[in-house]
Structure formats: C-alpha cells, structure tokens
C-alpha cells in the first residue's frame, strides 16, 4: 500500500508538472516576443503552484514511509540532486519574478532563467533515471536526453490544449495541426509515456517501506480525496483556453 501512495504522488508529479516543465523548455519556440511569452506562461500559471506540490508530497512520502530509500536516493546521487534543486529554485523564481517589473531586460533575463531551469530540471530527472537504472558514464546521457525530449513533447501537447491562435498552431506541431481530437490524443500519449517511465523506474528502486506505514498510510489514504478535490477545483476553474496574460 505504501508503494501505491508513493507512486500516486510521483506519477502525478511527472504527468502534471511534466507539462509545465515542458512548456518552460519550449518557451523560446512558442513565444517569440515578450508579450507572446507572457501569454504562453499564462497557459501554466494557474497550475504550476498546484503541480509542484505533488513532488513535495512525494518527498514527504519518502521521508515518512521510505526513510531508507530517501537517504539512498538523495545522498546516493548528491550532484544530480543539487542540480535538480537549483534548477527547480531558479525556475520558480523566474516564474514569480518575471512579470513583476515592466522592464524588457528584466523580463528577457527571467524568461532565460525559466528556460534554463526547465531544461535543468528535465535533464536532472533524466540523469537521476540513468542513475537508478544503473547506467553510468557517457551512455547515461541517452536516457537523460530521451526523458528531456519527452518532457518537452508533453509541454507542447499541453500548450496546444491551452493556447489560441498562432501560439496554439506552433504548439500543435506534434499533432500535425489536426485540431481538437489530435491535440487531446497527443497529450494523452505523452502523459501515458511519462507515467510508464515513472512505473518502470519505480520497479528498479529498493522500495522497502519503513515502520510508520501501518498507521500513516491509512491517514494519507483518507486525505487523498480531499487533495484530489482541491486539485480538481483548480483544473475545473481554469479549463478554458488562455485569453490573455495572467499574474505571472
């Protein structure tokens, strides 16, 4: 049961936050002017805060349910984990700060930080994946690059569902500009692919649960409907396509 709880949050993170990380990666392709980039960011703005909490929760599950694995995974890959955290921090800072000043140089700088942070996150996840499946040296770049490409594709698919006009057209490059159903199908495919990567990686982890699960797991399971309902409220509120810039 502990494994299912951890998997729920980890896969939720990959699928949901994977989309906003991917949009950050392809930001220079989708948005060619500062104004366009702000509209592209509006596609992920209402979601990214609620998306990254899935990883925070997955980290919490590691701490509470799999304390040994927590140490093994984090302390066992110090370089990758530091790179991952720094990318995450910089990307978040970029998203929050970007539109707080109207100056062009400021916005261009933070757009750059968002793109670099998003790539850094995707590649760090890829490297961690290589580490977990036991590939070292130069061949480790292959899984890292594949996973990064998958994040980027997922981001494009998500952007195609959220944006309008030229921006939507650019984002729909993967679904062959076939309109509504094609866009949905591409997103479903990239989402499933990310979930599969998550499950396959999980099978290679030493998932040995600690001793708190007996009382902690039921508590968390009881809370899950509340958490999902809170998230569903966000998805429902922002289910329509972006109509203009948002706070970010």
């Amino acid at each position: 049961m502990e494994i299912l709880v951890l998997a729920f949050f980890a896969i939720g993170y990959l699928v949901l936050a994977g989309a906003d990380i991917g949009v950050g990666m392809v930001l220079p392709y989708l948005g060619r002017t500062p104004g366009e980039r702000r509209e592209v960011l509006a596609a992920i703005a209402p979601f990214f805060l609620g998306n990254e909490v899935w990883l925070v929760a997955a980290g919490g599950m590691l701490a509470g349910l799999f304390p040994r694995l927590e140490g093994e995974l984090l302390a066992g890959n110090p370089g990758v984990v530091v790179a991952l955290l720094l990318s995450w921090v910089l990307r978040d800072a970029g998203l929050w700060l970007r539109s707080r000043l109207a100056a062009r140089a400021w916005q261009t700088w933070w757009d750059g930080v968002i793109v670099a942070g998003s790539w850094g996150l995707a590649l760090s996840w890829g490297s961690l994946l290589s580490g977990v499946i036991g590939i070292a040296g130069p061949p480790a770049l292959v899984p890292a690059a594949v996973l990064a490409a998958l994040f980027a594709a997922h981001g494009l698919a998500f952007a195609a569902l959220r944006l309008r006009g030229t921006l939507r057209h650019r984002a729909a490059v993967l679904s062959g500009h076939s309109g509504g159903t094609g866009e949905g199908r591409t997103f479903a495919l990239t989402a499933i692919a990310l979930a599969v990567v998550g499950v396959l990686t999980g099978t290679r982890l030493p998932l040995e649960a600690g001793s708190s699960g007996s009382w902690l797991t039921p508590v968390i399971l009881a809370l899950l409907p509340v958490l999902v309902a809170a998230q569903a409220w966000v998805w429902w509120t922002f289910r329509h396509r972006v109509t203009g810039p948002s706070y970010l």
Binding site: A45, P46, F47, F48, L49, G50, E52, V53, W54, V56, A57, G59, G60, M61, A63, G64, L65, P67, R68, E70, G71, G210, S211, S212, L216, V219, I220, L223, V226, L227, A230, Q231, W233, V234, T237, F238, S246, Y247
Partner: peptide
Amino acid sequence: GNAFGSALALETVVAFFVESTFLGLWIFG
C-alpha cells in the same frame, strides 16, 4: 526517519499540498 519522518510526510499532505493548491486558486482565480 521512521519516527519524525511521519510528521514531515503529514506536513506535505495535510498542510502544504492544500495550502499551495488553494493559494494558486486565490491568486489566479
């Protein structure tokens, strides 16, 4: 970790997860 880790786990799901999700709704909605 088997002792105090559970408090950190509950912090993420009881508190932070809901706090951040709802704050996003408050800001953008």
